[in-house]
């Protein structure tokens, strides 16, 4: 049977997809220099993996923030197709507190911009990766408080990943439940996990609990606690 209604009625295709923002908060202090190759490859793989997923492609937006000599936002939030990692560069100290506060601001602004445009926006993920410890301790308490408040309000979800020599006591202060120690050589598995998790989250319906794969499983990228 022909469906004349279908021929007559035009669906609105211009409403924009809901957003799942990701803020990659990468340590770019001097000590990271020997890991930049891994990071670069991982970012390329993350991008490729999201681009090939039709739904995640239109929902995930990525912003890259590095902290070393300074806290730098590399471009604004962009969809994965338009994301390109800056040339790798590492130097200076580890202003992690400033970086976290910056990321929380960026997350807040992103959500406000979405709301003004009538676009649903999930709580941004802030994915911090470091090989050391904060050098801006004067602002540390402030940063920890701000992260906790944002988590409480469900306005951001912060993941704190450290390599072997990171200060996990500090990281756990930021994120008691999502502090993860990266297994040596686990970089690519970590970025793959991140893209898989983002895809699952972006596919979910608002309000759904999205179970993430446990990175501590035997072939995962995290060391068991």
């Amino acid at each position: 049977m022909s469906n004349e209604m279908l021929a007559r009625v035009s669906v609105n295709t211009l409403n924009r997809e809901r957003r799942q923002p990701l803020i990659l908060l990468l340590d770019a202090s001097g000590s990271m220099a020997d890991k930049l190759g891994e990071v670069e490859r991982g970012l390329a793989a993350l991008r490729a993996s999201i681009v090939e997923d039709t739904l995640a492609r239109s929902r995930v937006e990525i912003a890259l923030v590095t902290f070393g000599e300074a806290v730098v936002l590399h471009g604004d939030f962009v969809e994965a197709t338009r994301f390109s990692a800056p040339p790798p560069f590492a130097a200076g100290a580890t202003p992690m507190a400033e970086a976290l506060l910056f990321a929380l601001d960026a997350a807040r602004e992103k959500r406000a911009a979405c709301r003004a445009a009538g676009i649903d926006c999930f709580a941004p993920w802030i994915f911090l990766v470091t090989d050391g410890e904060p050098t801006d301790l004067a602002r540390w308490t402030e940063a920890v408080g701000a992260v906790r408040a944002a988590e409480q309000a469900k306005s951001a979800a912060v993941f704190a990943v450290g390599t072997r020599h990171a200060n996990f006591e500090r990281l756990r202060q930021i994120s008691p439940t999502r502090t993860i120690q990266l297994r040596d050589g686990g970089w690519q598995t970590m970025f793959r996990w991140l893209s898989t998790s983002l895809k699952a989250k972006s596919r979910s319906r608002p309000g759904d609990e999205v179970p993430l794969e446990d990175p501590r499983k035997p072939d995962g990228w995290a060391l068991a606690p």
Partner: peptide, 9 residues
């Protein structure tokens, strides 16, 4: 909603 409405305010 997304099909039937214009959701930008």
């Amino acid at each position: 909603e997304r099909a039937a409405l214009e959701l930008d305010p």
